[in-house]
Amino acid sequence: MSHLEVLLLDDEPIVGKRLKPALAKVGCEVEVFQDPVLALKRIDEKDFDVVVTDISMAEVDGMQVLEHVVAKNNRTKVIMITGFAMMSLAREAMEKGAFDFIAKPFKPDDLRLIIARAAEALGKPIDFEINDNG
């Protein structure tokens, strides 16, 4: 099974700390960032399969990260997570090319499911069963 390269960006340290092993368990190789500037730098260096990013962050917000990723490589699936979920924000994210949008709080499985779908869309299925067809 191929590894799915995932970049996880959230200024909340616990998110990265806990989700990294959670995603690793289903066969993802996760790089965790808290600082969006460093994350953007890393994105420039490397093509990730999936970028998971928080929206509301200090210096650079998630929308900018999304734009950056899409501009660089639109094969990369970007998943937005946010505590400030609103219809307008969701529509904006989708319009800018996000793969999915999920509101905080979510369960690790919610994110795994989305990543699994992204992986499938990329043709690199991971070790997570998509049994929900919603």
């Binding site: 616990i14 989700l19 959670a22 709080p105 979510f106 499985d109």
Partner: peptide, 21 residues
């Protein structure tokens, strides 16, 4: 309310991973 989502999310993720692992 939105701001609360961050700590709650942290608790949720931690809790789930705690149970899982």
């Amino acid at each position: 309310a939105h701001e609360l989502n961050n700590p709650i999310n942290n608790i949720m993720i931690t809790g789930h991973m705690f149970l899982e692992d």
